[in-house]
Simulated scan of single mutants.
Amino acid sequence: MAVITFVSQLAQHEQAAWLALLSAKLPNEAIKLDKDLSIEQKLQCEIAIVANPDVDVLSQYPKLIWVQSLWAGVDALVSQLSHDKPAPSFKLVRLIDPILAQTMSEAVLTWVLYLHRDMPKYLQQQKSALWLQHRYLLPKERTLGVLGLGRLGKLSALRLHENGFNVLGWSQSEKLINGVQCYWGDEGLATMVKQTDILICLLPLTAATYHLINDDLLTKLPQGASIINFARGGIVANNDLIKYLANDHLEHAILDVFEHEPLDESHAFWSHEKITVLPHISAPTHFESAGEIVTNNIKKYRSNAQIPLYINWNKGY
């Protein structure tokens, strides 16, 4: 029986839970932790399942054909595997889960409504015992800009549109979405941002998107705009963000992702009155659903030798 390796730096109880789930769903496969494989087994292994792996460990598997990630976001893994060195010969498959997209769209709608209904202002007013009502805007009077129109971004944009908001979207290549005004390319980004009251980032982190939300972009946002980052921390230039919050050009920022996680206890974001800090909760992997998708990917591969949709090493997604 061929062996599938499970390479992970998760806590032992989490590794055990994933191993039990995957083994139960794939009774004809031998799925084992990397540490439990012999040298001979590692030399013959063709499939790996990974969750926060030590990438150096993967070099011990010369015959790897493809690697299945348990997470939807693989930008850090791509960077570690291909930065300043030739890309690996194996294919990297990220988790594509419809439930994940639904969960993300729910989070996007939740926090857009939080900003739309001025909750940060009312929270600050409560601390000062200040009774002050702010003018209500209809959703159609609020323009939202979604950065990234992949599976997560598209569903989130549609959900916002269904709730009556004026929704714009931007991607690096041309997209068409009913009810959403779509832009692409550098010129399209500038055009969209200038109209955006709430900017929602759902982009992958690549060389092209690193610090994309910087001084040049932030100055184009209308006075009083807000930002939601549910993508990756490296997309936002933190010093520029703080600058535009301090000069009141930006109203508020909701941050669920950071360049270093967990966010250090002494980090200034925790106490900043214009920043809402979330502990990377916008779209967590659903245990049972992810297990079903991963096992189906492996079953299909065994039946027809077709590798699931995989990452383009050059693009990073």
Score class of each variant (00 low, 15 high):
K194L: 00
G188L: 00
A231C: 06
T206L: 04
I177V: 15
H211P: 07
S173Y: 01
L218S: 05
Q223W: 08
G233E: 06
D197R: 10
D216W: 03
V193R: 00
H211W: 04
L202K: 03
T191I: 10
A207N: 12
L217C: 10
D215N: 14
D197F: 10
N178D: 15
L189T: 03
G185C: 02
V180N: 11
I177C: 13
L221H: 02
I198P: 08
I177E: 13
A190G: 01
V180W: 08
A207L: 09
K194N: 10
P204S: 03
D197K: 12
I200W: 06
L189W: 05
C201I: 13
N229G: 09
D186C: 02
D215A: 14
C182W: 08
L212M: 13
V193Y: 01
L203Y: 02
L199Q: 04
D216Q: 15
W184E: 10
L189P: 11
T209K: 02
Q172M: 12
Q172K: 13
R232L: 08
V180H: 04
E174Y: 02
D197N: 15
T209M: 03
G185E: 02
P222V: 12
T219P: 06
A190N: 12
I200C: 11
T219N: 12
E174N: 10
L218I: 12
T206Q: 01
G188D: 00
Q181M: 06
L205S: 10
A231P: 06
W184M: 00
L176Q: 15
L202C: 08
I177Y: 12
G185K: 03
G185P: 08
K220S: 09
L212E: 01
L202D: 13
G179C: 04
T191D: 13
G233S: 07
A208Y: 02
C182R: 04
L203C: 10
S173R: 13
D197E: 13
L218V: 05
L218K: 00
T191A: 14
I235C: 03
K194W: 01
L205A: 09
I235G: 03
F230M: 08
T196Q: 04
L212I: 06
L221K: 02
A207S: 13
N214Q: 11
T206R: 00
S226W: 10
D215P: 02
